[in-house]
C-alpha cells in the first residue's frame, strides 16, 4: 500500500497535516503529531502495515504493542478517507 497521490503531506511547526487536492472525495484536513508524520513518510513508498510496524519498532524506544496499535489505527483512518491505495 501507498499514500494516494491526491493527498499531500505538509509539515507546519510540530504538526503534520494531510491535505487532499481538489480531486479527492474527502475535503477535510487530517492533523497529527510526529507519529503520523513518520507513518506518512513510510507510506510515500509502497509498503505494508507490518513493514511500517517493524521499521518503527526498530527506530523508537516504544513498546511494539503501542506502535502496533498506533499504526493500525492511523492506517485504518487514512484508508477510510481514501488516502491509501492498495
Amino acid at each position: 500500500m501507498k499514500l494516494n497521490k491526491n493527498f499531500l503531506v505538509h509539515k507546519s511547526g510540530k504538526e503534520t497535516i494531510v491535505v487532499p487536492t481538489g480531486n479527492a472525495e474527502f475535503s477535510g484536513i487530517v492533523k497529527g503529531n510526529k507519529t503520523l508524520g513518520v507513518i506518512l513518510d513510510l507510506l510515500k513508498k509502497d509498503t505494508t502495515e507490518q513493514q511500517i510496524i517493524d521499521t518503527m519498532a526498530e527506530e523508537y524506544e516504544v513498546s511494539r504493542e503501542v506502535i502496533e496499535k498506533d499504526v493500525r489505527m492511523t492506517i485504518s483512518r487514512l484508508k477510510e478517507l481514501g488516502a491509501i491505495d492498495g
Binding site: 499531500l8 491535505v19 487532499p20 487536492t21 481538489g22 480531486n23 475535503s27 484536513i29 492533523k31
Partner: peptide, 16 residues
Amino acid sequence: TMLLQQSYRPHNSTAL
C-alpha cells in the same frame, strides 16, 4: 487550520 480550509485547494498537486 482555518486558513487551509478557506483557501482554494487545487486539483493539481504541485499547485496545492
